[in-house]
Computed example of a mutant assay.
Amino acid sequence: MPDPSDDEAERARDAERLRGLEQRLSGKGKDRPGSRTEEHFSQANMAWRMVTELVAGLVLGFGIGYGLDQLFGTMPILLVIFTLLGLWAGVKTMMRTAAEIGKKPGTSGSDKGE
């Protein structure tokens, strides 16, 4: 049967080795720069948001124009006008989102991209 003092000494050595290992591991992650995958996903999300805004403007304009044309019996004219207005609104919203990307986080500015 091992001596109790030898057992305690072995535990103390193990604990010291464990602390040394934890120190080495805590210093490892700080040396390397962070991964860019999170930034990549953020940019992809912004791109999808911009595409969705553009398509939503077009679909909304098309739907309103088609509905009004059915209501008033003026088939192509309101459809074309509201589809173009929807395109304009989608592009305007998309440009506002693009201006948000250019701003630094925490800075204030107007909707004009300042």
Rank of each mutant, 00 (worst) to 15 (best):
G102V: 08
M1H: 02
M1K: 05
E39F: 09
I81Q: 05
T52R: 12
T74R: 13
G34Y: 04
L85Q: 10
M1Y: 00
F62Y: 15
T93F: 08
A9P: 06
E8W: 01
V91Y: 02
E38I: 10
Q43H: 13
L54K: 10
E22D: 07
N45W: 04
S108M: 01
L60F: 14
S35F: 04
A98F: 14
L71S: 09
S42Q: 01
G73Q: 07
L54V: 11
F41W: 12
Q70D: 13
G34E: 10
D69I: 10
R32P: 01
M1S: 05
G67Y: 07
V51N: 15
L78W: 07
G34I: 05
F82S: 09
G113Y: 04
V80Q: 02
Q23L: 05
G106E: 00
N45Q: 03
L71P: 08
D6G: 06
D6H: 03
R19E: 02
R11L: 09
D3A: 07
Y66W: 13
A89T: 13
P4R: 04
M46V: 13
L60A: 15
G29T: 04
G113A: 02
R49A: 15
E100K: 05
L84K: 04
G34T: 08
R11T: 01
G106L: 00
M50Y: 10
K104H: 01
P2L: 02
P105V: 14
K104N: 02
G113L: 03
D111S: 15
S110M: 02
V51L: 14
G90E: 11
S110I: 06
Q43F: 09
E100H: 09
M75T: 12
G57L: 07
K28M: 02
S42H: 07
F72D: 14
A15Q: 02
K103D: 00
S110V: 08
L21M: 11
F72M: 15
H40R: 10
L18A: 11
P105T: 13
F41C: 13
K92W: 06
F62P: 15
